[in-house]
Amino acid sequence: MASDDFFDLSKPQVRRSMFFFALGALIGLAVAGYGLFTAQGTRSHSVPPEALALVNGRPILRSDFMTQVQTQFSTPFAQTAAGERRKVLEDMLAEELQVQRGLEIDLPSFDPDVRTALVAGVQLEVTADVLAQQPTKDQLREYYAAHKEKYVSEGVLRMRDLVAKHGAGPGTELEMANVQRAVAALRAGQPLDEVMRRYRLEDSGALMEAGHADTGEIFEFAAKAKLAPPVYAAAATLERGQVSEPIQQGDGAHVIVMLEHRLPVQEDYAAAADQVWTDYKNDAQTRVREANVRYLRSRADILLSVDALALEAQAK
């Protein structure tokens, strides 16, 4: 009689309600359990198909294994022997175990090499998308227009930096008059060596190559680094064949003779396109790296000492 009531849907029945309630709960639990134990990264009871082994829950991927076998034996994977594959598997298991041990003993906290490698790895990881993105031509042209100063060729010069040293001749006023005459002679086209000899001028020593005055080509930035600022400032304005006015310095009066001067030239977009592409990508990577650090700082619990706070304040 009770059985008849169970199947008679026209009548309410407590046992039937309880039965379907229990059935629903069981199906729900089964689905949830399956999801819990088979979601990517959570499987621990069996090896997922893409992996060859699990080491404390971490997979050794089949694709990595194949690549390693081929690399190690320089043979297509299909042609490798079981012994070769076994050796690689053992090596990969050992590597994974040691990596996990390294994390266990907190190797990154004290080994500078590990720290460097981790930083490099994280930076690569966060910039991977930027690296893979191809900027459009419009983006590159816009970047070029905004950073034109980057695409100027380096100027090159050949010059002599001559000096009439203090004490090499009569008093200061007479010294200057002597140098003025030397400048006039050079501008009149008299030979350099003769003028140097007659007016007691010598190379300043600022631009030397193997013990002699460097008369070869020098990049602008190198000349700027080697010459005193007033001397370089005078040199920068001279063109080929020109001679500067005397420039008073601590060691004497300098005269610049410009033998050749190729001024920096603005490269047009077509010539600079490749460098624009590189710079655009580098800038994008830098922005992503900096944003990543800002994000990490925003979620980190950083306590600064008084000294560190002072430094931070200075930086701002």
């Binding site: 690549t67 790895g121 990881e125 910039t127 991977a128 930027v130 690296l131 893979a132």
Partner: peptide, 8 residues
């Protein structure tokens, strides 16, 4: 990938 930034 190729020049993807991934170490592998």
């Amino acid at each position: 990938g190729i020049r993807s930034g991934h170490p592998k």
